[in-house]
Structure formats: structure tokens, C-alpha cells
Design a protein around this nucleic acid. Structure first.
Length: 422
RNA sequence: GGAGAAAUGGCAGAGCGGUUGAAUGCACCGGUCUUGAAAACCGGCAUACCGAGAGGUAUCGGGGGUUCGAAUCCCUCUUUCUCCGCCA
């Protein structure tokens, strides 16, 4: 949610910035400012009324105490009109606030200057491509065939027990998962992130805090009985740890990592996009989250990008980095770098990480602030990134490192999985 | 799941339906004193919003109600604690 003060002061820049997302927000922004103005005048009116009725009440107190009952009763009658007025104004203020919230919630974050404009993924900017396509002198198999051939993943069993998109990992396939998780967590720790195991279900407030709610209910599994949501990413619980928090000074840099399964309903997907590990309803991911001073958030973003690069390089994968265009940018993000690995047998790029800076957009909803030197509270910046999402990494590892009779395990993983090849 | 008790500022802990945004202690910050420190003394010390400012409004777990007036009374929800039940 954008800060209202920012909208008041930089209306035109916001409208201009949002054009990069392919939306013309002029009318919405202006409507917000009108509502804001109305809210302020109504609030001020209400407070004047409250002030005078508070005053009278105090006087009544004194009158009763000094035994002037008659005068007190007379004063009581005076308040009736004020009360009625207060009632009406209070309701108006409430309605305006509701309206305001609704409007603000529906406005996405403003992209940073470097974000290219564009409407679809075709307009994303390739920032860097690292590694080379693997060449095979035999018929390379897609990972679902490799998984079956080597008994690593059982998709059909998942369908039987749960449904499509919930595979079983078995034997070396399961060990590979566990090894990757541990490897990623260890690397995050080396980079200064402290590990956390959060709850896998969250309440509505948390969903709102990070921006999954309202609007994107459909993406999350909702446990209606208890009104809880299965997390679509560890970002939700990890960032919400700091909901309603005021950090005591400006000298902070919070770095958290966490492994969790992630649950996504992904309604509406079909075809080769969802084949094998390409898109699952439940998958594992190690997430890194940062809470930074506004002056330090860009540097943090760069650090996170480098962290992910290092992970992908260490696994010997061919990958590229995209700077998402305005149209492809998530609702809450000001800038996002996507990492895609090349899947040699499917011959397509698979997204394995997404690193984003939200500036104050989430912090505003979260009420996540710090105390500045002048004792004023200010909103923090939040960031997060996948480091990394497992299934597509596994897909790429299997496909890119396959041989005619097995799969080579990257050296860095060998100590984690306990074998050199599958 | 059942029965009971509780929820007040960073912490501890008062609080009568009426000048209580809230006593007191601790912590913290500033000052005096001191060569320096401690002690002692003095002062400050919640959050949000509106306002150029003076100032105002709201907030004592959340929501609602009674009342001219609620931290204080009522209803409801949540959470915590104690006891019972169930359980990896």
C-alpha cells in the first residue's frame, strides 16, 4: 500500500510511474486525493465536536461533585445535540476510511526508474546470461522421464494420495531434496541470514500484510474451518514476524532465511507448463527476507542477487537474470529480478528465483517502522528472494547433468546427498 | 473439548464511573554534583492521526453496548494461566 503522504506530494510521479505497468491510474489517484481531503475535513469536524462534548462532561463532573445537581442536569441536556452530531460524523469518518483503504489496497506499487515498461513477459529485460547450453550426443530426456527411470519421483502416486501437483519424492530423489534444502540454508547462513522455521499456515492479517490478501485469495489454500491460509511462500510468515514492530533505532539490518513447503492453488494452469516438476501445488523453497533502512535497501537487493547467482553457478547451471518489466511485476514489488535456469531437455527457461524490493509498500501495511535520529518513526523497506525454489532446480539438475546411464551430482552437493551420481 | 482466573506504558505493578494518558518502582535519556565514575538530587521518557502552530482527537487485549462521562459496568471475540480430558 502506497503511503498517503507520498500520494499527496508526488501525485504526478506516481501516475507516471504506474504507466510502466500499463495502467492509467490518474482517475484512481485523484479519487484518492478527493477522499483524503474529505476525510481530513470531516475528521477535523468530528474532533471539534468531541472536544466540546468532552469539555462539558468534565464540567458536569465538577458540578455533581460540588452538589450543583440542577445545573448538571441542565448541562446534560446540552450534550444531546452534540451526541447526535458526533454520531453522524463518526459514521462518515468510518465510511471514508473504509473507502480510502479499499482504494489504496487496489493501487499497486510504483516501479523504480530502472524498471522497463511493458505489458508482458516478452518485455522483460535480460540483464545477464551465465553459462552455456549443454550439448548432448544422445537423446536427452526430460526430467519426468529421468525421475521415473531412476525412481526419484512418483507423480502418479501423488495423484492417488492427494491429487495432481503433489508428487512423492523417493529414495535418491528424496535425499536430493533434503540435500538441496540443507545446502541452501547453509549458504544463507554463511551470508549472514539467521534461520527460522515459521508456521505453514497464517491468518488473514498476515496475508494482508505482505499483499496476498485481499484480491489474490484464489492463489492460497484457505482452511475455512479456522480461517487460516496455507502459505504460498515463506515470505508471508517471515515478513509478518515484523508486523506492528517499531525498531528502536536506525542501525538495523534484519536478515532471515527459512525453508518451508509452499502451497499454491495455481488455478487455470495446464499443458506442458505443469508437466513434471514445472508447476506444483506443493513445493519446497528456501526463502531469504530482509528488512532494511531505506538508504540501504538497494545495496541489499544487489547482495541478494549476487547470493542467488552464486548458488546457481555453484550448481553448474546455465541461467539468466531478467529485470521484470512493469507489466510483469508483482503487485507489491517496486523492482524484481527473476532468475531462470535453462532446462536442457525441455529446451526452455524455468523460473527458479525471484528477488524483489518492495520499498515501503509492505511495511506500510505491516506498520513496520524504525525510530530515526529525530525520534520520528519511519517505514522500513522490505525485500525477499527465493534462494532457491527446489523443483525446477531439480528438473534442471536432472536434465542438464544427465548421462546415458545416470545423472551427475554437482560437487557442492555431494557432501549433502551422500552420493556422486544417480 | 470442558471448568475457572486474568489481560493496564519497555518491564513490574496501582487504579474510586468524573480535571487519569493513566500512581509508584525499575529500566532508559538529559542535567547538577564529581578529577572521572557510582550514589544522591532535578528534569524528561507510549503510539497514531488532524493541525503551519497553539493545540486537539483516539488508544488501558480486539469489537460492540450502557452513560452527559468508561481503564473502571454489561455483552462478545481473542489470547494467556490453572485444573480436567485427548494427543505426536
Amino acid at each position: 500500500m502506497l503511503e498517503i503522504t507520498r500520494i499527496r506530494e508526488h501525485k504526478d510521479a506516481i501516475i507516471e510511474g504506474l504507466k510502466k505497468r500499463g495502467i492509467d491510474a490518474k482517475l484512481e489517484v485523484e479519487a484518492i486525493l478527493v477522499t483524503d481531503e474529505k476525510w481530513r475535513t470531516t475528521l477535523s469536524e468530528l474532533q471539534t465536536v468531541q472536544s466540546s462534548s468532552n469539555k462539558i462532561s468534565k464540567e458536569i463532573g465538577v458540578l455533581f461533585k460540588t452538589g450543583k445537581t440542577e445545573e448538571a442536569n441542565k448541562a446534560k441536556e446540552e450534550t444531546a445535540a452534540l451526541k447526535a452530531k458526533e454520531q453522524v460524523l463518526k459514521q462518515q469518518v468510518g465510511e471514508l476510511e473504509e473507502l480510502m483503504k479499499e482504494k489504496l489496497y487496489s493501487l499497486p506499487n510504483v516501479p523504480l526508474d530502472v524498471v522497463p515498461s511493458g505489458v508482458s513477459e516478452d518485455d522483460n529485460e535480460v540483464v545477464e546470461e551465465i553459462g552455456e547450453k549443454v550439448m548432448f550426443d544422445f537423446e536427452a530426456l526430460p526430467h519426468w522421464d529421468l525421475a521415473e527411470k531412476h525412481g526419484l519421483i512418483d507423480f502418479e502416486l501423488g495423484v492417488k494420495v492427494t491429487g495432481a501437483g503433489f508428487p512423492f519424492y523417493k529414495g535418491k530423489g528424496a535425499k536430493l531434496q533434503r540435500g538441496l534444502i540443507n545446502y541452501f540454508l547453509d549458504e544463507a547462513e554463511k551470508a549472514g541470514y539467521s534461520e527460522c522455521i515459521p508456521p505453514l499456515v497464517v491468518n488473514e492479517e498476515s496475508g494482508i500484510g505482505t499483499g496476498q490478501l485481499p484480491d489474490k485469495e484464489g492463489q492460497m489454500y484457505h482452511v475455512t474451518e479456522d480461517d487460516l491460509y496455507l502459505i504460498p511462500t515463506a515470505e508471508v510468515p517471515l515478513t509478518n514476524m515484523y508486523r506492528d514492530v517499531i525498531l528502536p533505532n536506525e542501525d538495523f539490518s534484519i536478515k532471515i532465511s527459512g525453508y518451508t513447503p509452499c502451497f499454491r492453488r495455481e488455478a487455470g494452469s495446464y499443458g506442458k507448463d505443469v508437466r513434471g516438476l514445472n508447476r506444483l501445488h506443493q513445493f519446497d523453497k528456501v526463502e531469504i527476507v530482509r528488512i532494511e533502512h531505506p538508504d540501504k535497501s538497494l545495496a541489499a537487493l544487489e547482495e541478494m542477487v549476487n547470493h542467488v547467482k552464486q548458488l546457481l553457478s555453484s550448481l553448474g547451471l546455465h541461467y539468466r537474470i531478467l529485470r521484470l518489466c512493469g507489466g510483469d511485476l508483482g503487485f507489491t514489488s517496486a523492482i524484481t529480478y527473476d532468475f531462470e535456469v535453462y532446462s536442457a531437455a525441455q529446451e526452455r527457461w524455468l523460473e527458479v528465483s525471484s528477488v524483489s524490493l518492495f520499498e515501503t509498500f509492505q511495511a506500510n501495511r505491516l506498520k513496520l517502522r524504525f525510530k530515526g535520529v529525530d525520534k520520528k518513526t519511519q517505514l522500513c523497506h522490505t525485500l525477499n528472494g527465493s534462494a532457491l525454489a527446489l523443483p525446477r532446480i531439480v528438473a534442471a539438475l536432472l536434465e542438464n547433468h544427465q548421462t546415458t546411464d545416470g545423472v551427475e551430482i554437482p560437487k557442492v552437493l555431494v557432501p549433502y546427498v551422500g552420493f556422486e551420481r544417480i
